[in-house]
Structure formats: structure tokens, C-alpha cells
Write a protein that binds this DNA or RNA. Structure first.
Length: 672
DNA sequence: TCAATCCGTATC
DNA sequence: ATACGGATTGAC
């Protein structure tokens, strides 16, 4: 027997097939009527199978012509999908030409029945250190939003519920977790919500600590990927039940069911961890942009450096820059110098033993003597197959342009990554050796070498599985991979950014931006120049990216990067999609597309002709045989239509039950 | 003329 | 996967 009122439930069924990506109507039995509220999980019979779904809304009538089935079962009366998140999932799916079901899988954690039943979720923790809500926040580092032009204005906008949008260039040494926490506290003070997203667990730990300082313990939740299913669900419920209005976490937290948002924020949007690896591959920045528009609420995109994407938001006027005055930046920044080529001569010099330039060696020694730790940033293991001379270990360089040489592939000659010239007869320019070797000089090896160069100084490694969050304020050599740099209690005295060539030598399009992002993230942990802080980057001074670091000008560098991409017709200056699959199918797919005005089809190219991103291929036949790819490129104004077209293509194919072997993607990352 | 069967398509 | 509708076929 159908329910007396609103007998129809509109259900988002858990099917990711493109042509079924819409709501389906079901009758609600009178006995289910009370439980089947919007946002609840239900089981429905769909095409003969029992599937999961969420009730999107209850309505009086259906437009469906045929017969309606009944909801099979209401899984639980818990409304886990808020209307706002449902709309966000729809928007994200549309933006990425994906299905809402796929996005909902990213947004909502699996149900944990025992947790749902336990009263713990509702329980109000009363152990909060009764902090008066308007207490002045401690400023251990002496900075605040006041340090930035438009910083205070943004905070005011959050307080007043205005949907301001900003791209924030954090000062070197900035206590950015505290700044984000202040935004959340400001929202909380006026009874509204906030969502803060950071790239990884280490950042979240810092953010958690900062939030603990400005909000009561039950005033926020953190959502980390490594929480168990019970705890993850428990925290999710605290948000969806409206008990807590501030959520902080890694990329999935962008979908946290916070109601009545005042502000959403992301820090370090250039970190590729913010790019979701599961379909439809949304990026946190884009999710929060959609969310802030829909809410509407304020949006902050922060970082020590600036991405081309954020620069475009600034240049187009969509977002306002929050940047400190030049003099403030200068006062906060360490002294930065480049010392790429001046390797110390003399085999027994301590500096040479540690592969350090004299400048780097001196900077480290001075910092240690002043009682501060030294940060040594080394490339991530396996990240780049850098080559060096087998006897003197200097980097292998191109004899024409001094660029870095790399193995072109199995049994292929060395090739310059800058000019592409092949080197068949290597011969070290410094020592004449004919031998070279691949040296991913990992953190461990660097640590050993540094230990020998600075006897008696403790060496701390932060890399891979053993990431340190913080190191004490005492002399030490802290060897860290990008992203794993611990915070130093009172700041580092110096930072040595090693293997700068290798970082910039990466063939990919975003290499310069990525290099600057990593350098600035490390350099930002060093005390200001006035306090003796020094940064030595092992790279050539003349490179624009090194110049941007020295001048501490991430905005200028991002503008250059964006201009370069505009010239080449690369994102974010244009919108792109990729279609990849068997050559014949790609060809047919392309033929059926209606691209917006100004749209271009690039390719198809066979994937066999493209250089493989990582050189690790050992004899096994590459799975790329007969696989082709086309790129679709449209002006930024055609972005929406591009997504619609790609979705239409996917729908047609899934309706026809074509082989699901075509990979369609908006904003493909392969380019980078 | 009508039922049994096939095939394509939608999936409430 | 299954269910349905329309088309097709073959027997009366």
C-alpha cells in the first residue's frame, strides 16, 4: 500500500552507466513512508537487480509513464546525503562528464551500522576547555590576516556571510594552519560552517592542532583517509546530523556534509594529491569552486606558491588576490641564492663529499652554529631517473645545452631532456669518465653523506613511510622529500634544495610550477633573512623559476606559466578532454562529436609513439599496442559544452552496450 | 489471424 | 541481469 502523502521517492540509484545517470522514481510503501526521508539510503529493484540508492526527494506525482516499483527497503532512516551535497555531486559529475553515482561514492563513506546505532555520535562532549568564543587567538609568529592586503576584508566577508573568493599567497613562515583555523572559527562564531581541505595527513595534523586552539574539541571534525570505517562514519554522522559545522580533511573532505557554509578553503592547490585518482577525477579546487558558487559561500585557495589555475582566477577577476605588501614579503623571506654549478673541487673537501656547493655548505654550517636545524630537500625516490658520472658523481649534462641527460628508454641512447639531442658517447666534462649511473640519490644516501660532512650533527630523515611532522629547535640536518618536510619549532636556519636541475628537467608541462611550489614550501619553513635564514638552491640562477624563488614572486611566475600555456593552448587557458582507446573506436567517437565554436581535435596519436612517463619497462609488451588518444581542445567558454558533449558520447556508448574500453576524461592529467 | 519467438532497448 | 514491446515468423 502506497504512502498517503508524497508517495513517490526520487532515487539516485548506484549505477555509473552514463545513460542511466539521473533520478528514478519509486513508490513508497506506507510502512516505509516515515523512514524514507530525503538523504536516506534505500535498496531498489533496478532492471531486475537489487541496487543501493539515495532518496533525493519525496514528491506527490511522477512524470514517469510506466509502472512504478516500490522501494525494496529503506536501509536506514539516517539522512546521510544532504541536499547540498546531492546538488554538489550532481554539479561535479556534470563538470567532469561523469556520473553522480561515481561522485557519491567519493563523497559518502560506507555505512557502519553499529556506529549509526550507538549514542556516542549524539553525545555532547563537555570536556572543552571552556574557551570564551571570542578569545583573542594567540599569535606566536606575529602574523595574522592583517598582514595581507585584503586579508582582514576577507575575514570580514566570512563573518558577514558574503561569498568572497580569494587566492591567498601565504607569507614565508606563515602559520597557515592557524590562518585557516581562524576562518573556521570566524564562521563558527556566527553559527555557520566551514570546510578546510589540505593535501596530506601531515598537513591535516597541523591543521587539527590549530583548530584545537581556536575551537572546542567538539566544534570540529577531521576527516583523514586512514581512519577506520567506524570512526570515519562516526565523524561523518556528526557532520550530517548537524552536531558539528566545521570539517577539515584531505581531498574527500571537500564533500563533507557541512550545512550552512560560510567558507570553504584549500591549501596548496598545486599538490597532485588534491587530484582524485578515481572517476570522474575531480580536483579539490574545482569541487570547492562549485561548492562555493552553489552554497553560496566564501572560497579561499591558498598556498605559498600559486598555480596557473589560480592565476587565471585572479586575472579573470573571479577571485581577488590576498597578498602581503612587497616589504612585508621581503621581511619574512629568507635570503635565497642559487649555486648550481659551483661544485667544490678537491676530492677530500667535506663539501664535495656531500655533493654540496661551497655556498650550500657554508649556509648549512652557519645555521647549525646559530643553533638551528637545516632542511635538506631531496627528490622523491624513484621520482626521476637522474644520471650522474660514475666516478665524480656530477650530474650528467648535455654537451650542447647543459641540460640533464636521461635514459630515453630500453636500449635507447641517452637523450637530453631539454633539447632532445641524443648522446651516444658519454664522457664526463669534469673528470673524463666514460661511465655513468642512474642515481636517484635517495634521502637515506644523502643523509649518510651529509652525516660525514658534518660530523657530530644529528641527521633526521623524513621521507616515505617515516614522515616527521615537527623537529625540535636544535642543530640537526633534516633530510626530507618534497611534501614531507617537518616543521621546525623555531624555523630552520637554512634550507638546501638539492638536485634542482633534475626537478626542472622533467619533461612535463607543469615542471617549472611544480619545482617552484616545492622549493617555496621548503623555503617557507626557514627563518627570515634578518634572522640569518638562508636558502641555497642547486640550480642555475638564470632560470626564470630560480629567479622567481629568489625574488619570492610566485604570482609573477604563475603569470608567466599561464602566459606560456595560453600561447601553447594548454589548460587552464583552454578546456581539454581526452579520449583514449582502440584506434578504430577513438576515430568513430571523434566523428560523432559536436565541439563548440573554436574547438579543435588534436590527434589521434598512437600511444606507442608517446614517450613513456616512467622509464621502468622491463621487456614485457606495453599494454598500449593499438591504443590511440585524441585531445579535444576548446576555448574556456566552451568548457560546459565540452563536458556535455563528452557525456553525450559516453551515454550513447553505454546505452549501446559498446565495449567499455574507451577512456573519456575531462582535464586529463596525462599532459602534465 | 494469431500465438510463439526473436531482438533491441530500457532499466522507475 | 531482466523485462518489456515491437517485429517477425510460421501454422492454422
Amino acid at each position: 500500500m502506497p504512502a498517503a502523502v508524497l508517495p513517490i521517492a526520487r532515487v539516485a540509484v548506484d549505477v555509473s552507466l552514463a545513460h542511466l545517470d539521473r533520478a528514478f522514481d519509486y513508490q513508497v510503501a506506507a510502512s516505509d513512508s516515515e523512514a524514507a526521508q530525503p538523504g536516506t539510503r534505500v535498496r531498489v529493484r533496478f532492471a531486475g537487480r537489487l541496487l543501493d540508492g539515495y532518496v533525493l526527494e519525496r514528491v506527490a506525482t511522477s512524470y514517469h509513464e510506466g509502472r512504478l516499483g516500490f522501494l525494496e527497503r529503506v536501509v536506514s532512516p539516517e539522512p546521510v546525503l544532504t541536499t547540498e551535497v546531492a546538488a554538489l555531486a550532481r554539479a561535479v559529475a556534470d563538470r567532469y562528464a561523469g556520473s553522480m553515482a561515481d561522485v557519491l561514492r567519493l563523497a559518502i563513506p560506507p555505512r557502519h551500522a553499529r556506529t549509526e546505532a550507538s549514542a556516542e555520535v549524539v553525545e555532547i562532549h563537555d570536556d572543552t576547555g571552556d574557551r570564551p568564543p571570542d578569545a583573542e587567538v594567540a599569535e606566536p609568529d606575529g602574523t595574522s590576516w592583517q598582514s595581507y592586503r585584503s586579508g582582514a576584508a576577507f575575514l570580514t566577508a566570512v563573518r558577514n556571510g558574503r561569498p568572497a573568493r580569494a587566492v591567498w599567497q601565504a607569507l614565508p613562515g606563515e602559520n597557515w594552519p592557524l590562518r585557516l583555523a581562524e576562518l573556521a572559527a570566524t564562521a563558527a562564531r556566527v553559527g555557520r560552517g566551514a570546510v578546510l581541505v589540505v593535501p596530506d595527513a601531515k598537513d591535516l595534523q597541523r591543521l587539527d592542532a590549530a583548530l584545537a586552539g581556536v575551537l572546542p574539541a567538539d566544534g570540529y571534525v577531521t576527516l583523514a583517509a586512514d581512519l577506520g570505517p567506524a570512526e570515519r562514519y562516526r565523524r561523518y554522522l556528526r557532520l550530517s546530523r548537524g552536531l558539528v559545522k566545521v570539517a577539515a580533511g584531505t581531498r574527500a573532505a571537500a564533500f563533507a556534509p557541512v550545512t550552512d557554509l560560510a567558507v570553504v578553503a584549500v591549501f596548496d592547490d598545486g599538490d597532485d594529491l588534491l587530484s582524485e585518482p578515481r572517476a570522474p577525477y575531480p580536483h579539490t579546487r574545482e569541487v570547492l569552486m562549485l561548492r562555493s558558487s552553489a552554497a553560496p559561500c566564501a572560497l579561499l585557495i591558498g598556498g605559498h606558491s600559486r598555480t596557473a589555475e589560480s592565476e587565471l582566477l585572479v586575472q579573470s577577476g573571479w577571485a581577488k588576490p590576498i597578498v602581503a605588501d612587497r616589504t612585508v614579503v621581503r621581511a619574512a623571506a629568507p635570503h635565497i641564492e642559487a649555486a648550481g654549478d659551483e661544485y667544490a673541487m678537491g676530492a677530500d673537501s667535506a663539501a664535495a663529499a656531500a655533493r654540496l656547493s661551497p655556498a650550500a655548505f657554508a649556509a648549512a654550517r652557519a645555521a647549525l652554529q646559530s643553533g638551528r636545524p637545516v632542511l635538506v630537500q631531496v627528490p622523491r625516490r624513484g621520482y626521476l631517473p637522474a644520471l650522474s658520472c660514475a666516478s665524480c658523481r656530477r650530474p650528467v649534462r648535455c654537451r650542447h645545452c647543459s641540460g640533464p641527460l636521461a635514459l630515453g628508454g630500453p636500449r635507447r641512447p641517452l637523450t637530453c631532456r631539454w633539447c632532445g639531442v641524443a648522446e651516444t658517447h658519454f664522457n664526463c666534462a669534469a673528470c673524463g669518465s666514460l661511465e655513468y649511473r642512474t642515481t636517484v640519490v635517495g634521502a637515506r644516501r644523502t643523509a649518510e653523506e651529509l652525516g660525514r660532512a658534518f660530523p657530530g650533527v644529528p641527521v633526521i630523515i623524513s621521507a616515505g613511510d617515516t614522515v616527521r611532522t615537527v623537529v625540535p629547535a636544535e642543530p640537526a640536518l633534516v633530510v626530507a622529500t618534497p611534501g614531507a618536510e617537518p616543521l621546525a619549532q623555531d624555523g630552520y636556519g637554512a634550507a638546501l634544495l638539492l638536485d634542482g636541475y633534475a626537478l626542472l628537467g622533467r619533461a612535463s608541462l607543469g615542471a617549472a610550477q611544480e619545482a617552484l611550489r616545492r622549493w617555496m614550501a621548503a623555503a617557507a619553513l626557514v627563518v627570515p633573512a634578518t634572522a640569518g635564514g638562508r636558502v641555497v638552491v642547486g640550480s642555475d640562477t638564470s632560470l626564470p623559476t630560480v629567479q622567481a624563488l629568489i625574488r619570492w614572486d610566485p604570482a609573477g611566475h604563475a603569470a608567466l606559466e599561464l602566459a606560456g600555456r595560453q600561447e601553447l593552448g594548454f589548460p587552464p587557458a583552454v578546456a581539454m578532454a581526452s579520449i583514449q582507446g582502440p584506434e578504430a573506436e577513438v576515430g568513430a567517437a571523434v566523428g560523432s562529436l559536436q565541439l563548440p565554436v573554436g574547438g579543435q581535435i588534436l590527434g589521434p596519436v598512437s600511444l606507442d609513439d608517446l614517450p613513456s612517463p616512467s622509464g621502468s619497462r622491463g621487456g614485457a609488451a606495453p599494454p598500449t599496442a593499438g591504443i590511440a588518444r585524441v585531445l579535444l581542445r576548446v576555448p574556456p567558454t566552451g568548457r560546459r559544452q565540452l563536458a556535455v558533449e563528452v557525456k553525450r558520447l559516453a551515454s550513447a556508448r553505454s546505452a549501446r552496450k559498446d565495449e567499455q574500453n574507451l577512456r573519456l576524461r575531462i582535464d586529463p592529467v596525462e599532459l602534465f
